[in-house]
Computed example of a mutant assay.
Amino acid sequence: MATEEITKHGVLIADHSPHMASLIAVMLRSLGRRDIRESYDANRAMIELRRRAFDVLIIDDDLNGMDGVAFTKKLRACSDCQNRLVPIIMMSAAPDAKRIADARDAGVTEFLRKPFAANHLQTRLTSIETNPRGFIEAEAYTGPDRRRKTVDIGENERRTEAQKREAS
């Protein structure tokens, strides 16, 4: 009987196409990832996410049973799921600017346009690992901080307490 190896770099791929999921798994293995699970519909992906912790979820926008944006919103709202805070990389074959913004606003961490190469996937994984973003929980949004960079406004640009009171 085969034993399941769980590593600290576990990745769940959720794509309606077994061929695409397999191709992404091959890319991940070429990047040194070994603990890879595949799921082909929304229900199975949610079962996997409830079963064990993952470091990254790679999800297709067109997932069987639920689209990727709706799935992301459901996962981010699921207070009892251990993977609620997991970084999510969403893939889509033909996204427009509105769809990418919808994914970002649902709580997606990174986005990939299909087709993509292993180096594009590596760039997103490196970004997630080297620049982790805080998790925001607000009335209208739950997910990673959407701001990608911090801007230092300097001391001269800060308001004094008196200016703050005058502005209010």
Rank of each mutant, 00 (worst) to 15 (best):
A45Q: 00
G134H: 08
R124P: 02
H16V: 15
Q122W: 00
R158N: 08
G154Y: 00
T72R: 01
A94P: 01
D105F: 07
R147T: 14
M1N: 10
D55S: 13
K98N: 14
S127L: 07
M66C: 10
E5L: 01
D105W: 03
I88A: 05
R99A: 15
F71S: 07
L75C: 03
Y141S: 10
G154R: 01
V11F: 02
P132W: 10
R34L: 01
A25P: 04
E139K: 08
G107Y: 03
A118R: 09
D15V: 12
E110A: 13
A140K: 05
Q82M: 10
A70N: 03
K164H: 01
D96S: 08
A167D: 12
F116D: 08
L28Q: 09
S127D: 10
C81F: 00
P18K: 09
A77N: 13
A93G: 15
D55Q: 13
R37A: 11
G154E: 06
R104A: 14
A94L: 05
G154M: 00
L121A: 04
A2R: 14
D62C: 11
S17N: 05
L57D: 08
E38H: 04
R104E: 14
D80L: 01
A94E: 14
I13W: 01
R133W: 03
A97L: 15
F54Q: 05
D67F: 06
I6G: 02
H120W: 03
L49Q: 02
I89M: 08
T109H: 03
L121Q: 03
L63C: 11
D55G: 14
R52L: 02
N43R: 00
P18I: 07
I153L: 03
T7K: 08
A53P: 03
H120F: 09
N43H: 00
I24V: 15
H19E: 12
R158A: 11
R147Y: 11
D102M: 05
A97I: 15
L31P: 04
R37G: 01
N131D: 09
A53I: 12
I47H: 07
F116E: 07
S22Q: 11
R33G: 03
I24Y: 12
G154A: 06
H19L: 09
R148H: 08
T126R: 06
R165H: 07
R84L: 04
N156G: 01
G107F: 00
I153R: 08
A25Q: 08
G32C: 06
E157H: 12
